[in-house]
Design a binder for these strands. Structure first.
Lengths: 126, 126
DNA sequence: CAGTATCCTCGTGGATACTG
DNA sequence: CAGTATCCACGAGGATACTG
């Protein structure tokens, strides 16, 4: 497993009042971007999943984005890439331990989002 | 308090496998962007804070970004803007209830980020 | 099948100047 | 003091074609 470069030097990009190293910014950067969360959700729901399977399930994602997102997630230790040298090649991605730990946090987050939504427009339900 | 437009129609921008409405994406979008988190952190630490005070504390932020971020946060009900009609004008921003509820979630998140950091490079401490 | 390689668009965010 | 108004740079993300 390679060393997560992004984590080492994350310092709130020096705009955050919380000192030199900000674990919050660091955490956010790990799941930032447009596709990381959807990927994590998909892997959480369905377990080990192949590349093209992911591409089908995550509506709208392109090869470029899927490949690069998977690479980042893997290099940060959030997902595992397992390659079976069959013919043709088979590659499966799955959530790694740290990502599993993240799930409950994301759930809390989603819960908060839901509360926001419900109390914001209790009547204006459409 | 105005109605948060972003919340109403948040649907994972249709790339997330979690159905038509995704509270997680909705939540993320509320604190997304480069400066919302730093602003929330600053307000959490120091309580009600004036515009220029915020600008000084949040290193590197510009008027454009501070103003627009504050506006979004306010329109989504995350912060309160209170204006004192003194001379010259005084405006103070503070965290609203929903944002207070968010703090513990963010703390959990930060904790996870810290764990990631510690276990990722336990020796390569610099 | 599981990706790379290129090229390009567009929106976030930055710089600067100005104002009620 | 607390912002707006403009203009602009850049990089994340998208489209398309190709490959081991």
């Amino acid at each position: 497993m390679s060393t997560p470069e992004t984590l080492k030097k994350q310092t709130c990009t020096s705009h955050c009042p919380c000192g030199t190293y900000c674990p919050l910014s660091a955490a956010l950067s790990l799941i930032g971007g447009k596709w990381k969360i959807p990927i994590i959700c998909a892997l959480k729901q369905d377990g080990p999943t192949r590349y093209n399977e992911l591409k089908r399930k995550i509506t709208g994602i392109t090869n470029t984005m899927l490949a690069s997102s998977l690479k980042e997630l893997e290099s940060n230790g959030l997902i595992c890439r397992r390659q079976y040298d069959e013919m043709p090649v088979r590659v499966e991605y799955s959530l790694a331990g740290p990502a599993e730990d993240l799930i409950p946090v994301l759930s809390q987050f989603a819960l908060w989002g839901k509360q926001m939504h419900d109390q914001a427009a209790p009547a204006a339900r459409e």
